[in-house]
Design a protein around this nucleic acid. Structure first.
Length: 114
DNA sequence: CCACTGACTACTT
DNA sequence: CAAGTAGCCAGTG
């Protein structure tokens, strides 16, 4: 288990209910801006082990991009149960649900407001 | 070590 | 908006 994996796990676990994060965002926060794909894989292999809210991770378009039909449905159901609303074409409004409480305590990173 | 894969993304048609 | 393309990175064989 490398640092990247640990950070991803940590980040996913800190996503609050009713909020989501994109794979790319998680990868970014974990320190590897372009490791979005690994995030998906990581979820798949660590969800049970760490009880991760994997359903709260979607792609940058606000869609559930998992291929497995069953999991796809489950994810939608879970999210809707948390209060997230899907539009007719299975997409959610990232402007509203994207978790920007962002920037976890990763030292170097800090919030810059104007 | 090399080649291939993929729950991704941003960019171009 | 849909489809194709080129990067990116960790796991696997």
């Amino acid at each position: 288990m490398n640092d990247f994996s640990k950070r991803v796990i940590m980040i996913i676990k800190s996503i609050p209910e009713g909020k989501v994060l994109s794979y790319g965002r998680v990868a970014l926060l974990a320190g590897s801006p372009y490791a979005a794909r690994q995030v998906g894989w990581l979820l798949n292999s660590s969800t049970e082990k760490y009880s991760l809210p994997w359903q709260r991770v979607v792609n940058s378009k606000g869609k559930v991009s998992i291929k497995d039909t069953v999991s796809f449905i489950i994810q939608k159901e879970l999210l809707m149960k948390e209060g997230i609303v899907f539009k007719n074409n299975d997409t959610i409004d990232l402007k509203i649900y994207m978790w920007d409480g962002n920037i976890i305590n990763f030292d170097q990173i800090h919030l810059e407001e104007s």
